[in-house]
């Protein structure tokens, strides 16, 4: 997309989200859609993050709370299973960690620079005091 000056915008601009036509949008998941350069899906807000969520699938019960309460469509769930976090669109707000009901939590926040493998290996154990 060429950069435009403030006085070069078209009046009543119309943006097309997709290249071509998608007939069954509700049956087509993100990975199968042909996004155009105008969809914010092709952009990234990864540099907003200070902390990142790390997903530990060993403790996940696929309750989908994180999916429904994610403000940024960043929890990838397919076929009723939570697969992972979309790191291009996650802003690191931490809502998913707060709503995670498992003990220990299957999602935890770590500093952006933390190494995922190390954190997964040192995952906290079950907290017996908590109900």
């Amino acid at each position: 997309m060429a950069n435009k000056g403030w006085d070069e915008f078209e009046i009543g601009a119309m943006l097309r989200t997709f290249n071509g036509k998608i007939d069954d949008i509700v049956g087509t998941h993100q990975e199968n859609r042909a996004y155009s350069e105008n969809s914010s899906f092709v952009a990234s807000v990864a540099d907003w993050r200070i902390n990142k969520p790390v997903f530990n699938k060993d403790f996940c019960i696929d309750c989908q709370f994180c999916w429904v309460y994610c403000p940024d469509v960043s929890i990838i769930s397919r076929d009723k299973k939570m697969i992972g976090v979309d790191m291009d669109h996650c802003k690191g707000c931490g809502v998913c960690v707060e709503v995670c009901p498992t003990n220990p939590k299957s999602l935890l926040m770590f500093p952006e620079k933390a190494d995922e493998e190390t954190e997964l290996a040192a995952w906290p154990a079950k907290n017996e005091e908590k109900k």
């Binding site: 952009a43 403000p71 940024d72 469509v73 291009d88 707000c93």
Partner: peptide, 17 residues
């Protein structure tokens, strides 16, 4: 519900959370 394909995309500029 979680099998729905979202029609709202990320990388919008709303505040985190």
């Amino acid at each position: 519900f979680s099998t729905s394909a979202d029609r709202f995309e990320g990388a919008n500029l709303l505040c985190p959370g």
